[in-house]
Amino acid sequence: MKIAFSPCPNDTFVFHALVHGLIPDTPSFEVTYADIDITNNLAATNNELDIMKISYAALPWILPEYKLIPCGGALGRGCGPLVLTAGYNGTEATVSPDPSLLSGKRVAVPSERSTAYLLFRLWAAQNVPGGVGEIVVMPFHEIMPAVRDGLIDAGLVIHEARFTYQNYGLSQVVDLGSWWESDTGLPIPLGAIIARRSLDLSNIQRWIQSSVEYAWQYPDASKKYVMEHAQEMDSSVAQSHIDLYVNEFTASLGEDGYAAITTLLQRAMDEGLVPQMDLLSLR
């Protein structure tokens, strides 16, 4: 069976047991490790992959070929994307209260179909007069150096960048997760697990939930695997990444999880940012 997910610590932590044959009665897996921008596009163009981690924002493009699996993904609180610019006071991030800073500016994003970018567009529509300027898509690990070096004016960052952006001399314009949570009261829907509808989806859900449970029960078992795939990341940063993104919603979306997803996609449809879709098909 073919599966694709990112080399980020939360994904390798969650899927370690599954892809290493530690979950009973599962097939062998051929793993593709890919950045979220790649998997978002693969989901829409390559149905040879059986299971994938994509952005929730990309769901309207992949239905009805794939089905959302209600576990294994990334939702949470206090874990949203950040918009960063150059400038750091040496002790703590300086948060700009003036979103007009981004008016007409070049902004780097990790994927045009990412939840991060969708949240950014929803926020910018309310807060950036006249809108931002050029959007540049680049791998997320290249964004902070590009902002630091003045190649772009601002960057939209995800994952472990929450813990390391000060090291690049950058400051925070807005925490999009905090904005989303205060605006909706819901968790932030980031990464989704999908599987081809032609497969036995109940089995896939059971396998992934078992892999999550194994990861929590034996947290040291995956450490070598996690660090092999982490991109030049300190082990403490990797652990912080796991602690933030692997939570109750990883085990099961639950009603709050589904509410977060449908609210995000309904707002995006209302703004014309994603294709129209039947939100009931997510269940």
Rank of each mutant, 00 (worst) to 15 (best):
Q126E: 15
V83C: 04
T45S: 10
T39L: 04
I242D: 04
L170H: 05
G73S: 06
Y214N: 07
T45Y: 03
M277H: 07
S178P: 00
H159F: 10
T94S: 12
D220S: 15
G177I: 13
L59V: 07
N203I: 07
S96T: 15
S240Y: 06
S222H: 05
S182K: 15
V95C: 09
T184R: 12
A86K: 14
Y218P: 04
V237Y: 08
I51K: 06
E65G: 02
T26F: 04
T94V: 14
E142Q: 15
L156C: 11
T26R: 04
G131L: 03
N40H: 08
A260R: 08
G131F: 03
D256H: 13
Q166T: 15
T184V: 13
V226F: 11
Y66D: 00
L42E: 07
S28V: 09
D25E: 14
L279S: 08
W123K: 13
G133R: 01
K2H: 12
Q231T: 13
E271C: 13
Q276V: 14
S103F: 00
Q231D: 12
S114N: 02
Y165K: 02
F15G: 08
G257A: 09
D175Y: 02
M52R: 01
K224V: 14
S222W: 07
R113F: 14
P7C: 05
D270T: 08
M138Y: 08
I51F: 05
D149W: 06
G21C: 08
L156I: 12
N127G: 10
Y56D: 00
A108W: 11
I69Q: 05
D175N: 13
D243C: 03
I158G: 00
P189V: 03
F5I: 08
R113W: 14
D35G: 03
S55V: 07
E112N: 13
A215T: 08
K53T: 12
L63H: 06
T32G: 04
D243S: 10
I38D: 14
I158H: 00
S202L: 09
S202C: 03
S210A: 15
G21D: 05
G76T: 04
D153M: 01
A57T: 05
L102D: 02
D37K: 13
S55L: 06
G169M: 02
Y66W: 01
F5Q: 05
V95D: 05
A125E: 13
W180L: 10
G78R: 02
Q166S: 15
I38L: 13
P219K: 09
P219S: 11
V212P: 00
P187T: 00
P97H: 12
A57M: 01
N47S: 11
P60Q: 07
N247L: 01
A17C: 09
A93N: 03
G254D: 09
S198W: 06
C71R: 00
L264Y: 11
R206N: 11
T26A: 09
I193F: 10
I3Q: 01
A259T: 15
P187K: 00
